[in-house]
Design a protein around this nucleic acid. Structure first.
Lengths: 217, 217
DNA sequence: TTGGGCTTGTGAACGCTTTCACAAGCCATC
DNA sequence: GATGGCTTGTGAAAGCGTTCACAAGCCCAA
């Protein structure tokens, strides 16, 4: 697939592809070999038409009358998502969230290895957290570049998030997962996703606040 | 605002409202009193027209030729988002992520109090984590109902997530933040948001994989 | 070989979200 | 009080994503 084709794919489609893959891996563990778009939709919280349309953006992977081959489609989605390899990730900020991420083995299971961790707090530097040594923030540029790290996770307080993002990009990182509750700017060609727990809770709060009369739906 | 008006608001708008509010609070700390849609757009990663359209869905809060009053708009957005009160939250699963959330004070700062934590592991039950006592999973239904808890956070392994969601809903919870990497089903009238760190990294992986020729954009 | 049941792949229709473009309106200055 | 510069609020247009609906195609049974 060419870059220009890839660019046309929407964020929501990519997100669903990940969900499909997660579901397919579960089916694989259960030993299922075929799955229909209807079953995928039920397991992934969407519609059969949506599943088929999403997949059709990349090719024809199913068999009419039968469904999709679980193994085959898993591999295809892994290819599409760029998961046919492992990714080297740098973590910046070893506070509560950063430490939790270092200990969260689902990341490695899904292809993302945190190979370096940084913190500006001297008391944390040198300690090992879940097997990864915490390094001083000053070494970030050198190590990220030297170790060919392509993804970064920002788990610092908001005021330093932008500076960290700048350093990561300068050192060659082209994808950033940001846990600081602030939007960070990056140059074109670099992707950022921000995860803000409180922001998600606020979304729930909105739904509930609009529901004061006990309405259903 | 009536429920039916509220229902028309899209998820993406609600998400942006939260981002606007986050930004406005920062401006308030800086002592700024007026802000234009252009400045908000720059600080929130969107466009001025989008900012104005989002706000216009709820009313006219600005002053032509000047912009929006920072204090006034903050309060308005808090009202809209249902943040004119505090929310009582139950946390289920005190593993790495759960413990990190208990120690993450940004939640309390933004109106969400984790007032109960549950775990099925006897070794964790009874311990206090960041000031909250861990209770046995069996007590969840009773305590959530008795304490008028309206929001739940699931931080258990995937296989138990659905059962926990069912218990939370049964006990009266109408909003769930799910950290288990699996989609959970809930009845109409209950909202769920799933946060999956690996899934977000996969999104970044997709962008980078489609970018092998060093294209810009 | 034929018929029935089921499922994919996809153009077209639909509906929602974003962007555009401009009238209405505020403020400072002269 | 009139002028110029700036900003909001909003219909209309454009752009996207989702849903519909059905032809094409597979498999099983008789």
């Amino acid at each position: 697939m060419s870059d220009s084709e890839r660019r046309r794919i929407s964020d929501s489609t990519v997100r669903r592809l990940s969900i499909y893959l997660r579901f397919l891996r579960e089916l694989r563990r259960q030993g299922k070999s075929l799955v229909s778009s209807r079953e995928m939709a039920e397991g992934c919280g969407t519609t059969p038409a949506q599943v088929r349309k999403d997949l059709s953006l990349f090719g024809s992977f199913g068999k009419r009358g039968q469904g999709y081959g679980v193994d085959e489609l898993s591999l295809t989605l892994e290819d599409i998502l760029g998961l046919d390899r492992r990714w080297r990730v740098a973590l910046v900020g070893v506070g509560k969230i950063g430490a939790a991420l270092l200990g969260y083995h689902d990341l490695a299971r899904r292809g993302f290895d945190i190979v370096a961790a940084f913190d500006s707090d001297d008391r944390k530097v040198g300690r090992k957290v879940s097997g990864v040594e915490v390094r001083p923030a000053e070494e970030l540029p050198r190590i990220v570049a030297a170790e060919d790290i392509e993804l970064g996770i920002i788990a610092t307080p908001p005021p330093t998030a932008q500076a960290v993002a700048d350093e990561l990009v300068e050192a060659g990182v082209r994808g950033i997962l940001n846990f600081a509750p602030v939007e960070v700017d990056v140059p074109a060609g670099v992707s950022v996703r921000t995860m803000d727990v409180a922001l998600e809770l606020e979304g729930l709060s909105f739904s509930l606040a609009g529901d004061r009369s006990g309405a259903r739906g």
